[in-house]
């Protein structure tokens, strides 16, 4: 069991003196679905931003796959296999669903501008490979009917799924999902939970997600980390966290 893919030790982050994350340590096992929960402003999104290099931690360190990540930039995180979706599905709005997913493969591209301009064989081969991978991911997430639609014209729930497809197509080892079900109805949430579970079960992707819907969190995740005001107040399997008095006090409110 003890095969951590991600280990945080004493990570702190502050914005102009305001502490957003305070000496946070936890680890994520390979192949698990780990949920970060906590009230708004608890530092969950900031933590994801540290993990993929958008922010830099003031103190402490993060180890990914046994290697310490130091002052990593977003592109470098992606190249190491850390994928990410966004709270507001920051898709490339003028591109089709298919092109958005293809853009997710950018970090795997080994061809050059000249090859693209002249359509040399290596470019053609790579383009074929990329299209096949994108088609496969569209099928996996049941997005094929929307393949040629411009994403700006799609309903929000579908856009969130395209965001997931764009991250999954690059086969990340670690996938960070920032509120993948925000703003969805019950049916859309169940579908998204099914896709997230399938990404882990069928592709072995380790997933760290932020989610507010406690029902979804408890049924989907193997491991829950609870944050409150930048501090960790709970860490363990869903059932243990659910019954932890400190967690209940900080976040879940009065016991059911």
């Amino acid at each position: 069991m003890a095969d951590p893919i991600l280990e945080l030790s004493d990570v702190s982050l502050s914005f102009k003196g305001l502490k957003a994350i305070h000496a946070l340590s936890f680890s994520v096992e390979r192949g698990e679905i780990c949920a970060l929960i906590g009230p708004n402003g608890a530092g969950k999104s900031s933590l994801l931003n540290i993990l993929n290099g958008v922010y830099r931690a003031d103190e402490g360190h993060v180890a990914f796959d046994g290697e310490r990540l130091r002052s990593i930039r977003p592109g470098a995180a992606a190249r190491r296999g850390i994928g990410r979706t966004f709270q507001h599905a920051a898709l490339f709005s003028g591109l089709s669903v298919f092109d958005n997913v293809l853009a997710g493969l950018a970090r795997h591209s080994r061809t050059t501008l000249v090859e693209h301009a002249l359509g040399l064989p290596r470019d053609a081969a790579e383009a074929r490979r990329f299209r096949a991978a994108a088609e496969e991911t569209l099928g996996f997430l049941e997005l094929t009917p929307y393949r040629d639609r411009i994403v700006a014209t799609l309903p929000y729930g579908i856009q969130k799924r395209v965001d997931l497809a764009r991250a999954l197509v690059a086969r990340p080892t670690l996938l960070l999902l920032d509120e993948p079900m925000a703003g969805m109805n019950g049916e859309e949430k169940r579908a998204m939970a099914r896709f997230i579970a399938a990404a882990r079960d069928e592709r072995g992707t380790t997933i760290v997600l932020i989610e507010h819907d406690i029902g979804v969190v408890m049924s989907l995740s193997d491991h829950v980390v609870v944050l409150d005001y930048g501090r960790k107040v709970g860490d363990g399997p869903p059932d243990a966290v659910r019954n932890d008095p400190a967690v209940i006090a900080a976040y879940l409110g009065k016991p059911h």
Binding site: G75, A90, L91, F92, A103
Partner: peptide, 16 residues
Amino acid sequence: RAVRDGETAAAVIGVP
């Protein structure tokens, strides 16, 4: 086009 439509998102998903 990815850089045009969302530079931060493009950087995060690995677009150079």
